[in-house]
């Protein structure tokens, strides 16, 4: 579904992603793990067209994303729910969701709104509330709901559990698993290593701008070097 080879990108002169290879097969949850500041968000920005690709290729469902604008990429069904949510604070919950289908799946807006409200009943109660006044957890639900409005083929979630209470983190991971079981392919960027490896099929560790370790999630969870470095065990 997604195939990245030799990707290089960064900011100005600073190279952050240094020849990264990664593949995501349809139907999978792929966890992308790594220390703070290693370049996970930078990778996501390159995938959604916000950062130019310096070299390497990104193939999404068989076609190259070289030179594609963020709008092209959304239209193709690669939807990115960003770190920090980036919801529209000056607009209502309903309007935020509606804009999720600005470029894609506009004709299914009604049905998908119902679906988003079924997944997140709290959003239905707050449909006319300004998004900027939602709690952090509600804002994260809104960001994901807004992403789902575009009927993603591949959904990138950048730290969806950031700033949530333990109970809500639990709920969030359950939701991610449910969405995946309903057929959605997910790239999950997370700091919650244990829970991510628990629900992911495949996982990779980002280090020095490359995917240093890749493999089935269960295998990574058992890897002694990784357990020492990331789990403190």
């Amino acid at each position: 579904m997604l195939e990245i080879t030799g990707l290089r990108t960064g900011y100005g002169q600073t190279e952050i992603i240094r020849g990264l290879d990664l593949a995501i097969a349809p139907g999978q949850i792929v966890a992308v793990l790594g220390a703070n500041g290693v370049g996970k968000t930078t990778l996501n920005k390159a995938l959604s067209g916000l950062l130019p690709i310096w070299s390497g290729t990104i193939q999404f469902e068989g076609s190259s994303l070289a030179g594609a604008t963020p709008a092209d990429i959304v239209a193709a069904g690669l939807i990115h729910v960003p770190e920090g949510r980036k919801i529209f604070p000056n607009m209502s919950v309903l309007e935020n969701l509606e804009l999720g289908s600005y470029r894609r799946a506009r004709l299914h807006r009604r049905t998908n709104l119902d679906r988003a409200f079924t997944i997140f009943p709290r959003l239905r109660d707050r449909a006319s509330q300004m998004a900027g006044t939602l709690s952090g957890g509600e804002q994260q639900m809104l960001a994901i709901g807004r992403g789902l409005m575009a009927e993603p083929r591949l959904l990138i979630l950048d730290e969806p559990s950031l700033g949530l209470s333990p109970l809500l983190v639990e709920e969030m991971f359950t939701l991610i698993r449910t969405l995946n079981q309903e057929g959605l392919t997910i790239m999950l960027v997370e700091q919650n290593v244990v829970q991510s490896l628990d629900i992911a099929d495949h996982a990779t560790i980002l280090e020095n701008g490359q995917c240093s370790i890749q493999g089935p999630a269960a295998e990574l969870a058992a890897n002694p070097a990784l357990r020492r470095a990331y789990l403190g065990l």
């Binding site: 959604s48 067209g49 916000l50 963020p70 709008a71 959304v74 239209a75 919801i87 804009l99 575009a150």
Partner: peptide, 13 residues
């Protein structure tokens, strides 16, 4: 007007 990056990620040009 308020969230350029969020808008781009919705496919807004």
């Amino acid at each position: 007007a308020r969230e350029k990056m969020g808008a781009s990620l919705m496919g807004i040009d």
